[in-house]
Amino acid sequence: MGVGLSLAEASIDLGDGGCENCSLATISRDVIVMQESFILIPGRTSRQGTTLNEGKSTAGYIEEISTLQMAAEDMQRLELEDGDLVRVYNDVGEITVPCKAARGDELPPGLLFISYGDQSSRLMGGDTHGSGMPDSKGLDVFLELATAPTTTAAPSSESPE
């Protein structure tokens, strides 16, 4: 009998926000992996603005919009170092990007920041709830080290055979 649990079945109600970190376990056929839930804030940065002018296919721009900032405290707890690839995902999509500690106390624990661009847009849903504006900031996401093997994350995952 399979031991897989879909994410939806294993999910815990995160409530309406706040910075709590919940640890969620998803059981794959082979490996138990710890995932963390975070709130993602995509936003403008000076470097994104300057490299944007240089061109969206320049290394500088791509680097800027692909780098995920994390609170040092969170990185420590998850044993992440600057440059480690992390997988960030929600029910809309997923991205795999390098992480980096935020300056000083700029980011409170539980919050992630990424420069607004192609990567962050993949986590944005198509539903604007009648407002014309998609959910663009304050997105609930999960994060895990990208090199760990994982189950499929989408709630509509197939049941294991």
Partner: peptide, 19 residues
């Protein structure tokens, strides 16, 4: 929600909880 560079310019910084 974040203590950005702009916070240095301010006399008061209110770090509001996300959302």
């Amino acid at each position: 929600v974040r203590k950005t560079k702009s916070a240095k310019a301010a006399d008061h910084f209110l770090q509001v909880k996300p959302r």
